[in-house]
Nucleic acid binder design. Sequence first.
DNA 1: TCCGGAACAC
DNA 2: GTGTTCCGGA
Length: 531
Amino acid sequence: MKAGCSIVDKPEGGGGYHFPEWAYKTESSPGSRQIQLWHFILELLQKEEFRHVIAWQQGEYGEFVIKDPDEVARLWGRRKCKPQMNYDKLSRALRYYYNKRILHKTKGKRFTYKFNFNKLVMPNYPFINIRPNGVVPQSAPPVPTASSRFHFPPLDSHSPTEDAQPSRFSGGSLVPSNPEALNDGGERKPDMPELEDGSSDWRRGVDLMASRNAVGTGSVNHQKRKPDIMLPLFTRPGIYPDPHSPFAVSPLPGRGGVLNVPISPALSLTPTLFSYSPSPGLSPFTGSSCFSFNPEEMKHYLHSQACSVFNYHLSPRTFPRYPGLMVPPLQCQMPHEEQPQFPIKLQPPPVGRKNRERLESAEESTTPQLATPSPRVKVEPSMDKEAECEEPPVKGKEKSEKEEGSSMAVPNTSLEEEKGPIFARPAAPSWHPAPSASTQVNFSVEESQEQGEGSGEKSSRESAGELGAQEKREDALMPPKLRLKRRWNGDRQADAPEERQNGRVHWNGVLGSPHLVAGPKAMTATAASDT
DNA sequence: TCCGGAACAC
DNA sequence: GTGTTCCGGA
């Protein structure tokens, strides 16, 4: 933010609802160097002195009315140092929020908009324990966020509309021993038609498991996050002084029920897809007693994210970074029917221009029978769009922190593939002797399927050995489709038991392992296209 | 008044 | 990526 331009740059001491310092920083919202408009709006809404300019709408949680559009525009213009700002322009900016599902227009009401707090809060704080009497700050239609990967039965039987709300998290009240932050990567593309939802969503209670503000048991210091603010979340209707405010307690200070939950401006409000990704080190769940979550759900969530990240070529950053977190190798390749919680559907990705070109060129350059363009296959939660965090891949540093003592991924030395390293094979789990460098392979189709899933020296040796060689020869003669199918089926059958034995796999091991891959096709295509 | 495309700045 | 500016259209 530019100094000297702000009228409400800093919430006054008694302002109540403050955004954390980081909310105004570039890093909190890549691409946005200043406070975002929706932030600003919230800011105004929380201030008594602007009540005459903008205020929460009566009777509708999250809905607000711009009483004085020109003034709001002027204030916004001041904040942004845009003297020429007017309501027309401001409203244009607001309209862009429609697609992002941050806001939507209340039709028929002049200057009236409604916040989608589901969008604002849930993505960043997916592990929310919804209490039957709780209130969820959500006024917009269900947003397919990362959190929506969880489809837990609504706990609130009073709200029929809740059933349709994907962004629900079960209330498994298990407190993780090491609750780490979950960087949401789950903002989806807001292309979906906007649905009108009732405001009933607001009448829900939410308990956030933790907040970034809380300095918890997390082993990692998120020095960046200086939680100077708390986002008051309403816990139940009617307990807050301002009946129109979506917050449990009016942003005004001195109220109880304030949770340490700053709204992150970085909600991947882009899901980006959103791609917004919370600033590095931002850890919403550093451990707070008010959060509860189910580790199983967490695993599923993370795993499905992993799948999406991997198959969508998304940066692993989409993954929350939990140094201490270990995720059991849930089989991404598992048949859909075996994953009731996360029905994964394999579907060809949209053939973008680039892909089309690639396919075309592939067809041209290869013989028909061998050039069977193996369509890429994505793993995708059936009701969700992919997780969409885009961030540079997790670098070795992070891995090394976790995998100290174990060998690091080694670039592919296999001559067979003649490809540069695509996905380095993750270091072997610490309980395994590190495979020799010669057995370290990249994620070419074969290796990834044979070794990655084995996650042990045995599989490595096999793939490197005669057996593997012969298999590859056979594969070479086999139509790609068959070959892939064979591997697909064979690997899963063969590897499943081993995986079960291994029990757990290091987080980053999972990240880089083929476990995340839907199938050989995905791997093949991914590897090939990335080369 | 509202919408959304487009180009552009940052 | 977000917001600004401009604009034509509903």
